[in-house]
Amino acid sequence: MNPICKNCEHEINGNFCSECGQSTHTHPINFHYLWHDIQHGVFHFDKGLLYTAKELFTRPGHSIREFIEGKRVSHFKPTSLVFLLGSFYGLLYHFFHIKLPTHLINGNSEQASDIIGDWITAHYALATLLTIPLLSIASFLAFRKTGYNLVEHLVLNGFIAGQKLILQFIFFPLLYIYSRTQTILLLSGISMLIDILLAFWTYNQFFDTQSTLKNIFKTILTYIYFFILFAILTVVISSTLELFIKKA
């Protein structure tokens, strides 16, 4: 006789209930259950996070394309990946008081740069997530003949954002050591260069039906489109804030 689902009381034939999806194996609520729930539900360490991190630095474009095509069980979802890593990185940045040397920032007072830095630190995950739509529109325009829709580009660039955040964790000890010195600007530049090279590699693997030369050109075009869109958005936000301040 087949077991009965403890959730909906339907007969089960297999490892999961065909009616509600609950597993046949319901473990007792104890510390082992709690630890497994934290691993699986919050960090998904048993498969998703570590597996996705490995894939993003060994075969990024291929693994992202496989995710879009339906191979998703082992992957951590891109939005959750960015939000989790971005939130944790923002906490680290705030806790260790990482700051750029304000006397080297041209055109901004120390107070203004602190305000901007504090906002980004407090909302690092949100700030990272907000760049994804702009980059996705840019890559969609640059690679528009490859057949992928805008939402699929959002997934692609979401994973790339997660890839960049993982790289930031690798650089974090050096940022802490050289915080408030000129060296931190050099480290930021090196990190940005590696980000761009990783993006070239990822796009080239993802759009593997095109030549490498064409993918390099279209990746450059993606970043040109992105900076244009970012500049337009910055002007709009600045103008809106100025009008708001004047009315206030």
Rank of each mutant, 00 (worst) to 15 (best):
K164I: 11
L175Y: 15
S113I: 15
N106E: 13
T128M: 13
Y178R: 00
L135S: 13
L129S: 09
D114V: 01
Y178M: 06
G162C: 08
R144A: 13
H97V: 09
I105H: 03
I170A: 10
S188V: 06
L129M: 14
L186C: 05
L187E: 05
I160A: 08
A127D: 07
G117P: 07
G107H: 06
Q168K: 11
F95A: 12
A161C: 00
T102S: 15
Y124E: 02
K164P: 00
Y176Q: 09
G90F: 00
H94C: 00
Y148T: 00
G90I: 00
K99A: 12
H94D: 13
I98L: 10
L130Y: 09
I190A: 10
I184M: 06
I132R: 01
T183V: 15
L175G: 06
F169N: 01
F140Q: 08
I170P: 05
G86F: 05
P173W: 02
F143Q: 06
L104M: 15
D114R: 11
L100Q: 13
P133D: 05
H94M: 06
L130Q: 03
L154Q: 11
S179H: 10
I184K: 02
T128H: 06
I184W: 05
H97G: 04
N149Y: 03
D114C: 00
E110T: 11
N149H: 02
L167N: 07
I120Y: 12
A161T: 05
L154V: 09
T131K: 13
F169E: 03
A127P: 00
R144D: 06
T121E: 12
D118K: 11
G107D: 12
I105M: 09
F169H: 04
